[in-house]
Write a protein that binds this DNA or RNA. Structure first.
Length: 534
RNA sequence: GGUCCCAUCGUCUAGCGGUCAGGACAUCGGAUUCUCAUUCCGGUAACACGGGUUCGAUUCCCGUUGGGACUGCCA
């Protein structure tokens, strides 16, 4: 009983009038009204309600995409709901078009969300009424208070704390306005000061609080005693912590998937839910996606400043198949997928169940080579029409020269990309990205063709080939002619073929030579060989 | 400094007290092939360290070391 007293009543609550003044207006809702407005969702047992909640910084991080995929899959496979919530509470960091970039990325990667209006709005900046109503409740119960500390005040406090070797932050004796009287509040308000609303923390760091993570199990922390900001003074918007509390409660989120950088504030969030008497959601703290820093040689999180591949836009620009990126990411979250797919048990990541408990918790290095492998496999198993469509769409958006070139003769590109695609089990895996696909077949255009100057051609063989070459030959006759040339010259069949291959394409490695010549046409074949003979 | 998280081949991982420690990518070798591709075979390669608990530890506990995150009126 004593303990409860300590936890729930440490200062008097503010009067309704004062709460309205402090908040800049009377709260629109009571807690009961909010509960009614956002009722429990009508979903089957075991359905997950998840959300991807990025802040609009004008940039979609690969780690964010990973989390969004996990969220989306969890909801999809359980018959639940996946939401996209924009965390735009930091007015200072707002970037134009940022939301468009996020929505566009979600769309391109096929991450479908369902923002049911009933539980909206989905922009935090439009949910002020909700936050203020909850804050009013806390204020009335003496579990929050208006704080008039300025940025300079706090900076000074922090410096002193550092100098004295104390933990930094606004807590206990450092929380100057923690027990501020109503009279003092009114005086400051009259003087035109605008307060932030701080939590009146009743946590005791000597005690431990245990927080449950779906993957990591129960994690113990010292209780939080910081009077963290709930509502910011400059714009009246909530901090992440308070928004998370209100939004995930009233949106009826069942599972919060977020990065492990949130682990340190986990006890705070549980404290908040307990103060409200609400059941917290289940948490899944994912690991970061890292790389080895080329300068320091140390592992670190993929950063948007140093690593282009941290940005989802990078993969779009280079024309990576979004499905392959998703498979790569999905296989990190559900490592059994790879094997199941190779065994033919499932066809895509969407068919493979993601077990929350199996989501890895140690940081994974981003493996470009493995992504490449996924991409090769992905493109190789794609019908040629789809491949052509993807390549054209990419060119239309990112490479107008290619787009124009393809536009002149779309059939030509299709014929090129159709080479060696008839046998599904033996399709070459030359293609990785849409961009690279085009570069790979550039030699099919005279103005892009680059003659191989390194290769030591045997002009006799080339001349012999030209003499008997007939584009109308079927593959057997064509090959028989090559065999004849080889035996006549006393060289291996492969030598003749290689001379032709390099002469016609400029490369030592290409798909089936006969098919290439058929697609190129007699004139191109003859002129390229002729150029060498000159 | 404090708090918390993490630790199996080079990489991503399987493993939940007894396994020849399995798979995939990468790598190396071989076979097929018009090809430095594909396909098919095969190889090298890992339980960070030290203590416990146990008949028996990769697996459980503690410590060490190493890596990471957080420590804002940013999320």
């Amino acid at each position: 009983m004593l303990n409860l007293e300590r936890v729930y009543k440490m200062r008097d609550g503010l009067s309704a009038d004062l709460i309205a003044r402090v908040l800049g207006g009377a709260p629109k809702y009571t807690l009961a009204e909010l509960e009614e407005k956002y009722p429990a969702r009508d979903l089957p047992d075991g359905a997950f309600v998840t959300r991807f909640a990025p802040s609009p910084t004008g940039y979609m991080h690969i780690g964010g995409l990973y989390q969004a995929l996990v969220d989306c899959k969890l909801a999809q496979q359980s018959g639940g709901v996946f939401m996209l919530r924009i965390e735009d509470t930091d007015t200072k960091r707002e970037v134009a078009d940022a939301v468009k970039i996020i929505e566009d990325s979600m769309h391109r990667f096929g991450l479908k969300y369902n923002n049911d209006e009933k539980y909206g709005p989905y922009y935090q900046s439009k949910r002020k009424d909700i936050y203020h109503s909850v804050a009013a409740d806390l204020l009335a119960r003496g579990l929050a208070y208006p704080c008039f500390l300025t940025a300079e005040d706090m900076e000074k406090i922090r410096e002193n704390q550092k100098a004295a070797g104390f933990a930094t932050g606004i807590y206990g004796e450092f929380a100057r306005d923690r027990d501020i009287s109503e009279e003092e509040i009114i005086r400051r308000l009259d003087a035109g000061q605008v307060p932030s609303i701080r939590l009146y923390s009743t946590g005791n760091p000597q005690q431990r609080i245990f927080c449950k993570d779906a993957v990591r199990g129960s994690i113990g922390f010292p209780e939080n005693n910081e009077d963290i900001v709930l509502i910011k003074s400059n714009d009246g918007l909530p901090t992440y912590h308070f928004a998370h509390l209100c939004d995930d409660h009233f949106m009826r989120t069942t599972h919060v998937v977020r990065g492990e950088e949130w682990l340190p504030s986990f006890p705070l969030h549980i404290q908040l839910f307990r103060m409200m008497g609400w059941t917290p959601p289940m948490y899944i703290h994912t690991s970061t996606i890292d790389k080895i820093d080329s300068e320091t040689g140390k592992q670190r999180k993929l950063s948007k400043r140093h690593d282009p591949e941290a940005n989802v836009a990078y993969f779009l620009r280079d024309g990576w198949p979004t499905g392959a990126v998703l498979e790569y990411l999905g296989n990190i979250a559900a490592s059994g997928y790879e094997e199941a797919k190779n065994k033919g048990q499932v066809k895509s990541i969407w068919e493979y169940p993601l077990r929350p408990k199996k989501i890895p918790i140690s940081g994974a290095l981003f493996d470009m080579k493995k992504l490449e492998w996924w991409a090769r496999e992905f493109i190789a198993t794609m019908p040629v029409d789809e491949l052509v469509r993807h390549v054209r769409e990419w060119a239309n958006e990112y490479d107008l020269q290619w787009a124009a070139r393809i536009g002149e003769n779309p059939e030509y590109l299709k014929n090129i990309l159709s080479i060696e695609r008839d046998n599904p089990k033996r399709i070459r895996k030359d293609f990785i990205t849409w961009h690279q696909t085009l570069d790979e077949v550039a030699y099919f255009w005279d103005d892009l063709f680059v003659q191989n100057t390194e290769y030591a051609f045997n002009t006799d063989l080339l001349r012999a080939f030209l003499e008997t070459f007939d584009i109308c030959d079927d593959k057997d006759s064509w090959w028989n002619k090559i065999v004849a040339i080889a035996s006549g010259a006393g060289v291996k069949n492969g030598d003749v073929a290689m001379n032709l291959r390099v002469a016609v394409t400029g490369r030592t490695n290409t798909p089936d030579l006969y098919s290439i010549m058929q697609v190129m046409g007699a004139d191109m074949v003859k002129s390229r060989i002729g150029d060498i003979l000159k």
